[in-house]
Design a protein around this nucleic acid. Structure first.
Length: 414
RNA sequence: AGACAGGUGGCCGAGCGGUUGAAGGCGCACGCCUGGAACGCGUGUAUAGUUAACGCUAUCGAGGGUUCGAAUCCCUUCCUGUCUGCCA
């Protein structure tokens, strides 16, 4: 959530910053007036409550002293009604405020490029030269079927469309990648965690998926639980409503989880192949950092993910997202896009974001700064999306006869 | 899943309708003591909102109710423990 006090005190600046993300200034004006209304409603209610409290104290005194309480009782009863009304108003004001506030995205960082969609993202650098083929490189679905690696039909049979089955060497390669990623992250200082794949609503609100993006989540029937769309949710919320000591920072965590997404807004996109599935494996990095150090940690995370691609010999490029393409919670995001020769395109394989204190404020993750409690900065990034890495290996390591070589670094994992 | 017992501050633990944000202890911080330490003594030690400030409001797992007044009584719910069932 954005800092409402900051909004109130620096309205024009805040409004200008959120314009990058396409938030209308009248939405913010509305938010600001709801905030002021809540404060007023709370003040009125709290005053009535204070009066009630002091009369109640008197009441006890009178009784002890054996004084007549009839008059006081009448006053207190009258005030009680007023108070109940004021309380209801305050409650309504609060609900109105949070309905709006929880749906406002994070401020983009100052340096984030202007732009309305992915077309205006900025390429920072390319890493590794794409290999040149002396034959027409095939797309991964063709290679997947030819090698018996991906069984699309049976995935659909078992579940529904956008599910698939990996078989034989592909299944082992998937597992090898997970292990390789986790080991690499661990070597960089990330603690490895194995977390629940179902999380409750409070956690999903903490990281920003709820309330606004519930349509993209699989919810468990008759349970207040959701299949996680990314390990960012459980890893970041490890410290939900906790206060860390400054010396614990940064907390670096990594974990493998499957991720489940309804892909509600993606009808018709990437329907062929394994690029966009309802279930996919991912190894995630999450950092909980001191506000002064989060930029440093961010760079380290980008470098780590890029290094993994390099180690696998996969050409990729590093792209900074423009304001319009930034996710809801992110203040700054760098995507890594891997080269897919079959598609003749760079495709997203990792997304690393600094959410600053946006998630921390929602999830109440703080640290002790002297006597004061302050919000931490939270960061997350894939290292990497496993299924897409598998695809990238298939397309980049394919031979003319359709067979696929295994990258050297993975051979000891197979 | 069923039965019973519980959930109080960083931790342990008292309180079971009134001035209790909460005794006592431990821990922690600071000061005194010491050559330095331990011991001892003293002081302090939750979070959030609001206010220029004094202060006010909220929080004893969570939500609701009874009452002038709830940590204390009632209901719902979540969690923990023990036993039974089931299961990897």
């Amino acid at each position: 959530m954005i800092d409402l006090k900051y909004l109130q005190n620096n309205f024009d600046e805040a409004s200008a910053r959120l314009q990058k993300k396409g938030v209308e200034s009248n939405t913010l004006e509305n938010l600001q007036s709801l905030f002021i209304q809540l404060k007023e409603a709370n003040a009125a209610f709290e005053n009535a409550r204070a009066e009630q409290n002091s009369m109640s104290k008197l009441f006890g005194q009178y009784k002890q002293e054996g004084k007549d309480i009839a008059e006081l009782k009448a006053k207190v009863d009258a005030n009680k009604e007023v108070m109940a009304e004021l309380q209801e108003k305050a409650r309504e004001a609060e609900e109105a405020l949070y309905t709006v506030a929880l749906a406002i995205p994070n401020f983009p960082d100052e340096g984030v490029p202007e732009g309305k969609d992915e077309e205006e993202n900025v390429e920072l650098r390319k890493v590794l030269e794409p290999r040149s083929f002396d034959f027409e490189p095939k797309e991964h679905w063709e290679l997947g079927e030819k090698n018996g690696w991906i069984d699309f039909e049976r995935g659909v049979k078992l579940a529904k469309s956008r599910f698939s089955v990996l078989r034989g060497e592909a299944a082992r390669l998937e597992r090898a990648l997970i292990n390789f990623f986790l080991d690499t992250n661990r070597a960089k200082g990330f603690e490895e965690l194995c977390v629940p794949f179902l999380n409750n609503a409070a956690m999903l609100q903490g990281t920003g998926q709820l309330p606004k993006f519930g349509d993209d989540l699989f919810k468990i029937e008759d349970e207040a639980l959701y299949l996680i769309p990314t390990a960012e949710v459980p890893l970041t919320n490890m410290y939900h409503d906790e206060i860390l000591s400054e010396k614990e920072l940064p907390v670096l965590m990594t974990g493998y989880t499957p991720c489940f997404r309804k892909e509600a807004g993606s009808a018709g996109r990437d329907t062929r192949g394994m690029i966009r599935q309802h279930q996919f494996d991912k190894v995630e990095m999450v950092a909980i950092a001191h506000p002064d150090k989060s930029d440093e940690v961010f760079e380290m995370m980008v470098q780590n993910a890029s290094d993994i691609l390099t180690a696998l010999g996969l050409p990729h490029r590093v792209v900074e997202l423009c304001g319009g393409d930034l996710g809801f919670s992110a203040a700054k995001t760098i995507d890594l896009e891997v080269w897919l020769p079959g598609q003749n395109k760079y495709r997203e394989i990792s997304s690393i974001s600094n959410t600053r204190d946006f998630q921390a404020r929602r999830a109440k993750i703080r640290f002790k700064d002297g006597k004061q409690n302050r919000f931490v900065h939270t960061l997350n990034g894939s290292s990497l999306a496993v299924g897409r890495t598998l695809i990238a290996i298939m397309e980049n390591y394919q031979n003319a006869d359709g067979t696929i070589a295994i990258p050297t670094v993975l051979q000891r994992y197979m």
